[in-house]
Design a protein around this nucleic acid. Structure first.
Lengths: 169, 169
DNA sequence: CTTTATTTTCAGTATTTTCTGAAAACATAA
DNA sequence: TTATGTTTTCAGAAAATACTGAAAATAAAG
């Protein structure tokens, strides 16, 4: 294996391991990494061979990645098999991941909080008021953080991040 | 069960379910939620009873929560058992979670990227240069996002977040 | 010291998540 | 139409993760 191939392979493998720390499964992370560093779109069979995973596994994770928007199907003239390529623009990848996390993590949390806040709002006991206050504080915060993420991730340009860093120093 | 107790119970249960979506286990999320809405510190036995979990499970997750800094041991006069209470300041909770995520998610990712960037930097082929560029771009971004998180999470006050929101609009 | 209370550890078990492989569904070509 | 290539689905198997319960370790009390 060439040095280049080895580096790529190492990247794909390690990225896969990291995926677990994150909330995504190993195969999904590996496929994403593989397509990120592939100079050309790959077919399901090529991915299966490269990563030693079954067709079912490859297929499922490819569809998930497409639904996230991290990869897309491309048509290669004269070939019947589907080919896949990754979105390579770092800023776009960030926006996609940020939105997905918001959808899967902070929005459900906020929903739970809102529900409990609503149910506790008319109770009179000191303890109930304390609960109401605590949960409201949490929710205000989650909501604010959410709207910051929303705005950041809807920007076209990444030049925005350096500006934030400036505000902080 | 009183309305108040029901709301709390509901919060604890749902928060536990959310924990899985996040990268933390159900019991850990539930213990944290329980202590967050408890007006007084609780013992391991009280937590075991409240959540119907074993002593081993409760003990392990309490220690993890302490090591995160999300809860702390407190001593109750005249009692031998350890009591635990949650950090209730929302901003502090956020800072702790942000730092932990940085440590467990973005730093290892950055490490993998740096490693592959270093190994590919002297290769001459077009494809190697392409790889080097792609990974560098990813790493620049992760590093920038990291330093923003670092700065935000090191601030004493939460008044900072509204300022960021202002810059964005 | 001995006894009793409390915490920690960890082997074994249960649960959840991920993966395989083959059959079914679908699509194109002949 | 039938034959052939490709994708999707999903039941069961494998792997990873979380939990239990009891024994061992530790700490305080007598």
């Amino acid at each position: 294996m060439s040095e280049l191939a080895e580096i790529k392979d190492n990247f794909v493998t390690q990225w896969g391991a990291l995926g677990s720390q994150w909330g995504i499964n190993r195969t999904m992370a590996m496929i994403h990494a593989l397509l990120l560093v592939s100079p050309k779109p790959l077919t399901t069979d090529e991915i299966m061979a490269e990563l030693s995973v079954s067709r079912g596994n490859a297929n499922t994770n490819l569809r998930d990645l497409v639904s996230w928007g991290l990869i897309r199907q491309v048509i290669v003239k004269g070939e019947r098999k589907d080919h896949y390529e990754a979105e390579k623009d770092t800023w776009k990848i960030f926006c996609i991941v940020a939105r997905e996390r918001k959808r899967r993590e902070t929005e459900p949390a906020s929903q739970v909080l809102k529900d409990c806040i609503e149910r506790s709002k008319d109770l009179k006991s000191v303890e109930a008021k304390e609960l109401h206050k605590q949960l409201s504080s949490l929710n205000d915060f989650v909501t604010l953080a959410n709207s910051i993420m929303e705005k950041v991730a809807s920007k076209e340009q990444s030049s925005l991040l350096p500006k934030i860093l400036k505000v902080l120093s």
